[in-house]
Design a protein around this nucleic acid. Structure first.
Lengths: 153, 153
DNA sequence: ATATCTGCAAAGACTTTGCAACCTT
DNA sequence: AAGGTTGCAAAGTCTTTGCAGATAT
């Protein structure tokens, strides 16, 4: 159903069109766990790790297995509605964006709050510089970290 | 000797001045292993993982423990002469740059070969966009991946 | 002579997989 | 009824740490 082409250096992800199941293939089922996870993600503009999401759900009285959380996060990422950031300590943080349009993030390194950054000039320059070196099939990572207004106090 | 301030979201690394030991502190010793690792890194313009470097050294008849490789890579990073990139599969890849001036990389996702990118406009735009949102103490990640001329064939 | 360096073994941390019971459709 | 879903336990990976013997200065 989903086609993810992950390569060693940089990743190329083919989005999966969640609503339109392929010929004779099963659909993703609607379950309490899936809904809970989506709700928690949508409720905050922060990047959270799977473990943090799990801990919060346990506290909130919505116990969902860590395994299930990892699985749905990956499904959401495949669908393009959740975006990720690699933390320095080798963890992956997830954030609900609700759409799969290409963009980047400005992330608070203290609390994880983030804003979306969609700057066409970045994209253009990245392409120009890379193509100037003869590289093709480009993709890129770009994240800005800083202290958000709230965490500056 | 080295001061590394690693925060959860994004990293702030205080360079360590390798040549000038602090008051009464010991210096890094010159050893065969350290030299071998540095030589291997300098010999290629690629980003390599610790495990790849280890494998190559074993094949090259320069057996050095994986532990030692990890330790020296970290020392080189602290000194600023080696830069890193986080791979999608959660590994860290290292590349000898020889200097600690701020820059980014254009990396071939097939073979890891890379070119340095030093584009002041990127830096400027990143700062402007982020400050416009009220964020301070900025830092950022930026890497472009693609297929190098050689790997396109 | 002594503090650092090496590297094996073991520990750590996050994430993935096997599998039997469970729940949507 | 059929097949996706759940979650515990176990496995997997990369990286770090403990420690005793080896080594650079």
């Amino acid at each position: 159903m989903s086609t993810v082409v992950a390569e060693r250096w940089g990743t190329v992800v083919a989005m999966r069109t969640s609503g339109a199941p392929e010929s004779g293939t099963a659909r993703t089922r609607k379950t309490l766990q899936r809904d809970s996870i989506a709700r928690v993600l949508r409720a905050s503009e922060r990047f959270r790790t799977a473990q943090e999401i799990h801990a919060q759900m346990m506290l909130d009285g919505e116990p969902v297995g860590l395994t299930t959380i990892y699985r749905h996060l990956q499904l959401f990422v495949d669908e393009g509605v959740v975006h990720t950031v690699q933390l320095d300590d080798r963890q992956t943080a997830y954030r609900w964006c609700g759409h799969s349009a290409h963009h980047h993030h400005l992330v608070c390194r203290n609390c994880g709050v983030s804003r979306e950054l969609a700057d066409e000039e970045f994209e253009a320059r990245a392409a120009v510089v890379a193509e100037g070196q003869g590289f093709t099939e480009l993709s890129h990572n770009f994240e800005v970290f800083g202290l958000c207004p709230t965490c500056q106090r």
